[in-house]
């Protein structure tokens, strides 16, 4: 959406005085509304409203073959689709490129680069069923219904919520039950019927997944969680991935101009502090929230 020059000028000026157009202070996030378990057919799901930005994530777990490089680890594939409902510019293939970029950033946040070493995200090793042969494949599909700025932030946050909500069935497998003979016999995998209604087991490593916090630099002011208009006014926007311990896990910069290296450290510290705070409240909420499908 394009904004008039008057609005851009005003927004820039206003931020210098420490007031943002929706009345927030520079360090405030927009109000956050989270709904868990809203998609009945998914293994886990969540919907997040951050101001007017609205994203739904559905997680589906399927059994499949592991990657050759990581035979003992499960797999995760993230996709982000910009729904045309958000704007006519996403009609057809309009939002495809941006969706790909967001998906890459989302995947990078959710799973560590070297899954066999563990740490830094979901524990993919815990998703192995039969090492080398069968693992859980997690499909994390995000759908952006409205874009009011901060989409990357929201995608990671709601994916985290959906994963906290995800339950995978317990697997029972019998060796030699399937095709083939003797040593080459393929094991047969059966998904245990969820008779006790416990809904399966939760995923490991959800507490390690970082959040992404966006900071916009508007002249001399730094605004947390910029809206669409603020992103347009900002000389640059820093996206900082931080985990629950306040450690910075990743940094990305975007925007019209560069960012001053001298300001980098301060920005990263701010982002990390904000991120760990939000994570703490989120995890507290997940603990007491009802499970998927209950």
């Amino acid at each position: 959406m394009s904004h008039s020059s008057a609005e851009i000028d005003f927004c820039t000026q206003s931020c210098q005085h420490g007031i943002r157009l929706d009345g927030r202070a520079c360090e405030d996030f927009r109000p956050l509304e989270l709904e868990l378990g809203l998609i009945a057919q998914a293994s886990g799901s969540a919907r997040l409203h951050l101001g007017s930005t609205d994203v739904i994530v559905g997680v589906k777990a399927e059994v499949g073959a592991p990657l050759r490089e990581h035979p003992d680890c499960g797999r995760l594939q993230a996709t982000v689709e910009m729904s045309s409902c958000a704007s006519p510019e996403y009609e057809g293939r309009g939002g495809e490129l941006w969706g790909l970029q967001l998906a890459q950033a989302l995947e990078a946040s959710l799973v560590p680069e070297h899954p066999e070493k563990g740490g830094g995200g979901l524990d993919l090793r815990s998703l192995s069923i039969i090492p080398g042969k069968a693992v859980w494949l997690l499909y994390v599909d995000a759908l952006v219904l409205n874009d009011g700025g901060g989409v990357l932030c929201v995608c990671v946050c709601v994916a985290l919520a959906a994963l906290s909500n995800t339950r995978v069935c317990v697997c029972v497998f019998t060796m030699g039950g399937g095709a083939g003979e003797g040593d080459a016999a393929e094991p047969e995998i059966e998904l245990e019927d969820d008779e006790e209604g416990e809904g399966g087991r939760p995923l490991q490593g959800v507490a390690e997944v970082p959040l992404i916090v966006s900071l916009g630099q508007v002249d001399n002011a730094v605004v947390v969680d910029p809206t669409c208009l603020e992103e347009q006014c900002a000389a640059s926007v820093m996206h900082i991935a931080a985990n629950a311990r306040g450690e910075v896990c990743g940094v990305q910069q975007s925007g019209r101009q560069g960012v001053d290296p001298a300001a980098l450290v301060a920005l990263m510290e701010r982002g990390a502090a904000a991120g760990s705070e939000v994570l703490a409240s989120l995890h507290a909420y997940f603990k007491q929230a009802p499970q998927q499908g209950t």
């Binding site: 998609i39 589906k60 399927e62």
Partner: peptide
């Protein structure tokens, strides 16, 4: 009138990345 019908990847029982086209 321009109309576009799309299904979310998580909308069906079996997950399928359908796309809009």
């Amino acid at each position: 009138i321009k109309c576009e019908y799309a299904m979310a990847a998580f909308s069906t029982g079996e997950r399928r990345k359908r796309g809009k086209s």
